[in-house]
């Protein structure tokens, strides 16, 4: 059975201060694709992967969804169950969630609609390669 939905962390709230790997501080709403790529390049442990949304299904509770991703070059299939408002960062697009209206309502974070085919920023350990 899938894991419980991930609870919503505080750092997606508009105005949250995020520290990049080089020490630079940015607000969560100002982050760009390059910020994630450059931070991962500096990191000795973490590697950015491209994770393509393959399916979006209803979750076990009404406000949850199960998202199936195809992760990295090996296209490993990984499912996560999250609340509909949980934002993912889509390459070249920015924050996106299954229910952007709700994300904006709860976090004041402007969001696009997450769709099948979107390529999200995700992390893996370098040693897993």
């Amino acid at each position: 059975s899938p894991p419980s939905p991930v609870a919503l962390p505080p750092f997606f709230m508009r105005g949250s201060i995020i520290q990049l790997a080089d020490g630079e501080l940015k607000r969560v709403e100002d982050l760009k694709t390059e910020d994630f790529i450059q931070s991962a390049e500096i990191s000795s442990e973490l590697k950015i992967d491209s994770s393509t949304v393959e399916r979006i299904d209803s979750g076990q509770s009404p406000n949850a969804v199960v998202i199936q991703f195809s992760v990295g070059e090996l296209k490993a299939q990984v499912c996560v169950e999250v609340l509909v408002e949980y934002p993912f960062f889509v390459f070249g697009q920015g924050w996106s969630s299954c229910c952007p209206d709700r994300t904006t309502q709860l976090f004041e974070l402007s969001c696009a609609k997450l769709c099948v085919g979107d390529v999200c920023v995700s992390l893996t350990l370098r040693s897993l390669r």
């Binding site: 997606f12 520290q19 501080l25 990191s43 299939q77 993912f88 893996t124």
Partner: peptide
């Protein structure tokens, strides 16, 4: 004001051994 590390915003999607 709390400061959060960049990697906390990104899901960790690791292939599992059972795959």
């Amino acid at each position: 004001v709390p400061v959060f590390p960049w990697h906390s915003l990104v899901p960790f999607l690791a292939p599992t051994q059972s795959d």
